[in-house]
Design a protein around this nucleic acid. Structure first.
Lengths: 151, 151
DNA sequence: AATATTTATTTGTTGTAACAAAATTCGAAA
DNA sequence: TTTCGAATTTTGTTACAACAAATAAATATT
């Protein structure tokens, strides 16, 4: 499955914009499916992984759900139960913020950090494959086009 | 929100590949959210819309669920209930395939065709905005890079 | 022809997403 | 300080997604 036409068995598109949009959605779905596959043994979803990476980015400083939601790739309007799961699995800790009791202080536990390492390691392989497919210039160009598309 | 760094408030990425991947997921989420917003008044989701477009592509020839699933942008492993909903809303018709009674013949109803027209029309606006942001060359280039990325 | 295998769809179950509304706490204004 | 409004998270509810298993019909095998 290389070109989008073969992938979704459609030989002609309305125009080149339509084609790019369809291709973008399709490609993102492929990447997501691959990530789901990698995370499955850990019983986590991309959303959980994304939250853990956000937490690691500020570790050991705690982050509150509101701040997490702000920077999530896919804003969860259901963050509470997403965090519930991570807490049940012992990957994060929830503490009342001492300065503002409306907020919760969320931090990765040691177990969370270690699991994240493992997951990152497994993602590395996909990452390496990608490097073989696009040059640095092309990756940068792709990013730039996506920025333009969002306006 | 233009550049991905501002969008998710992260100033540095591991490398340009990581950045492109994150940007791709984020951008696809934006497009999906926009589509969800447009479809909301019709009480349909992108998956439903995708199925209807597939049906229209072959109309008036019937298509069976297996063929639909094959070309969906996001393969639904739950196509039955997805079709249930479209049928409840009178947008599609389900008939036993006369030559193979394992299969179902799915076709758009007249109401389905008309609703699809309306939805397409509403999507046109987004489509026009896009044309202002990317040249035809850029759109083609984006599509090409996505093809390469998938390998 | 009878049985097994494969194909195609449906059903059951569980977890997650979307949305609205509730609950709690903070900060500001009267 | 009491009240009001805003900020923050949680809860309730419904619909959707993922996965496995079940059903049913066609095809192949013996």
């Amino acid at each position: 499955m290389t070109r989008i036409e073969e992938a979704i068995k459609q030989s002609k598109f309305q125009d080149v914009y339509q084609k790019a949009l369809v291709n973008l959605i399709y490609t993102a779905n492929c990447l997501r499916d691959e990530q789901v596959r990698i995370l499955k043994p850990f019983d986590l979803l991309p959303q959980h992984f994304n939250v853990m990476r956000i937490l690691r980015g500020r570790h050991p400083k705690p982050v509150c759900p509101g701040e997490i939601k702000e920077v999530m790739l896919d804003k969860a309007n259901d963050l509470t139960r997403l965090l519930d799961k991570l807490e049940r699995k012992g990957l994060i800790q929830r503490n009342l913020c001492p300065t503002n009791r409306r907020k919760m202080d969320i931090t990765l536990t040691q177990a969370g950090i270690e699991l994240l390492e493992k997951m990152n390691h497994m993602m590395e392989q996909t990452h390496e494959t990608l490097k073989g497919r696009l040059s640095e210039r092309e990756a940068a160009s792709l990013s730039h086009l996506l920025d333009k598309l969002r306006g």
